[in-house]
Structures are given as structure tokens and as C-alpha cells.
């Protein structure tokens, strides 16, 4: 098994009172988290950190606790033991009011988009702003900006029922990005999509990581998601358009890591290349399907 490196929350002062370099505060940190439902262990002593601007893949088969990680970060369920930090704040003992404040800093993209059926695309994307009582002109400007980001401005007046699966997820991403959250959580965003649409969703995740400097957790069991996101990066060309280019290994080392869960434990942590080179039986089976 592999150990994850924990980023320190150092005070910035050494014993003599002199300033020392401080490691940046991680966006998300799990410290010795345990969780079980009745007799079924979901997570056992799980510790990991997601740094600022980092994309953390959470891989694993069905029922290995991938989506549970996301629910724990949002405070939708509480761990039995251990601590969870979001931008340095320990959310483990937070009450509903404090959790609502934390949730407003996080964007969440659900598996099927989870759009509100009774609201139009505009109202779905504007949901957070309407709740906050923001002026309608400002709301419209922000909604259009977000829909441009996911390339769906034409669908602004449509109802969710009129959208395809891929469009629903892109609207879900636009809704998650309103308010420019520093953290975005993806819960199997490409499940059930055709390869070109899945690729579009991955491009959005790359764009968020490289252009918006967003920290994200990307829960998936699809290896091609990992291939795209850990091997390419986004840049803005001279005409202001986003281009995707293949990266070298050093680039991927910086901002994309993979974590694999099995039976409540972190089975693997490292880079995508390391995962593919691993000779571990479970990992080989997960990658090759046999």
C-alpha cells in the first residue's frame, strides 16, 4: 500500500521566532477518517490532502466509498472518527448553519447533473445567486458567463427535460461554478456518456484546473477520464481561445494525482503514470478489466 504525504499547517514561525517558509494550506484534508454503515466499513483511517489548484482522481470499483468521500467533504454525512478540513477549517463538528457557509464555497457536479426539473437552465444556473438575493442584472451577466464557459449559451431558456445527458452535466458544471468556488467536486460526471461528450466534460475539468486554478476531486471509474486529464493541459492562445496540449510528465506531477480506494483503504496514491506502471493485481485488473 502507498502512503500519502500530508501537507503541514505550519504556523510560519520556528522556535526562535524567526520566519520559516510555510507550506500552502491544502484545499481539502482528511485526517484518519473512519466511516462505517452498520457493520460495513466504508473508510478506515483514510488520510490525504488536495493542494490548491490540484486535481485529485478518486478511482475504485462500485461500493468502494468514492462518492462517500465527496459527501463527507460537503458535510452531508459525518465521519465516525477523524477530521476533515476544507480550506483549513475543521468541518467535522460544524452545525448545519456553518456547513451551509462551507458548502457555498464548494461547487458540486453530480452524476446525472441533478438539475432542478421545475426550473429552466437560466434559473438552475442562477440558483445560488437568487438564493443570495443578488440583483437580476448581475445574475443574468453571471449566468451568461458561466454558460459561455461550458459552451451552452443557446440553451439558456430551455427546461432540463429538453437537454441531452451531456448538456445536463454541462449545465450542472455551470451551476457548480457560479460564485467562482475554489473547490469543485465531480461525482462520476462522465458516467453513461458517449466518448466525445465525456471528452468535453474532461476538457472543462482541465480548463478549471489550469486556467481557473480550481482544486478538484474527480470521482470516476473510467480510465479514459484519467488519460485525458493527466496528460493534457489548457492554455489560452493569442486569439483568446482555449487550446489543449499534451503535457510532459513533470507538468502532471504538479497538479494531478490519483488515489485508488479498496475495502475502505487507500490502495494507491501517486501519478497516473505510476498507476499504469503498477504491477499490483487489483490495479492491473481495474485498468485492463481482467
Amino acid at each position: 500500500m502507498f502512503e500519502d504525504i500530508t501537507v503541514s499547517n505550519g504556523s510560519g514561525m520556528n522556535g526562535n521566532g524567526a520566519r520559516v517558509p510555510v507550506a500552502p494550506r491544502p484545499a481539502i484534508e482528511f485526517r484518519n477518517v473512519d466511516l462505517a454503515f452498520d457493520d460495513q466499513v466504508i473508510l478506515s483511517d483514510v488520510s490525504f490532502c488536495v493542494g490548491r489548484g490540484e486535481t485529485r482522481f478518486v478511482l475504485g470499483g462500485s461500493g468502494t466509498g468514492k462518492s462517500t468521500v465527496i459527501k463527507l467533504i460537503l458535510g452531508l454525512i459525518k465521519p465516525d472518527a477523524g477530521k476533515i478540513f476544507v480550506e483549513g477549517e475543521d468541518i467535522t463538528e460544524f452545525d448545519d448553519v456553518e456547513l451551509m457557509r462551507i458548502r457555498k464555497k464548494i461547487g458540486m457536479v453530480f452524476q446525472e447533473g441533478a438539475l432542478f426539473d421545475s426550473l429552466s437552465v437560466y434559473e438552475n444556473v442562477a440558483y445560488r445567486l437568487h438564493e443570495a438575493g443578488v440583483d437580476e442584472d448581475e445574475v443574468e451577466h453571471e449566468v451568461r458567463r458561466m454558460l459561455q464557459f461550458v459552451d451552452l449559451e443557446d440553451a439558456i431558456d430551455k427546461m432540463p427535460i429538453e437537454l441531452s445527458g451531456g448538456m445536463r452535466r454541462r449545465v450542472g458544471i455551470a451551476r457548480a461554478l457560479v460564485g467562482d468556488p475554489n473547490i469543485v467536486l465531480f461525482d462520476e460526471p462522465t458516467a453513461g456518456l458517449d466518448p466525445p461528450t465525456a471528452r468535453t466534460i474532461c476538457e472543462l475539468a482541465i480548463k478549471l484546473r489550469d486556467i481557473e486554478d480550481v482544486s478538484s476531486i474527480f470521482v470516476t471509474h473510467e480510465m479514459n477520464n484519467l488519460d485525458y486529464i493527466s496528460s493534457e493541459y489548457a492554455v489560452i492562445d493569442r486569439e483568446g481561445k482555449v487550446q489543449y496540449e499534451f503535457a510532459g510528465e513533470t507538468y502532471c506531477l504538479l497538479n494531478t494525482k490519483v488515489m485508488m480506494l479498496l475495502k475502505g483503504d487507500i490502495w494507491f496514491t501517486g501519478r497516473g503514470e505510476e498507476l499504469k506502471a503498477s504491477q499490483d493485481n487489483y490495479i492491473r485488473k481495474f485498468i485492463n478489466g481482467k
Binding site: L76, M100, R103, M108, F110, E112, A114, D117, R128, E131
Partner: peptide
């Protein structure tokens, strides 16, 4: 359809 979870995740 996870709309309730989405609502919680959006801070409502």
C-alpha cells in the same frame, strides 16, 4: 434524482 443533495450542496 439527487436534487435534494444538490440543493444542500448549493447551500440551501
Amino acid at each position: 434524482s439527487q436534487q435534494i443533495e444538490a440543493m444542500r450542496a448549493l447551500g440551501t
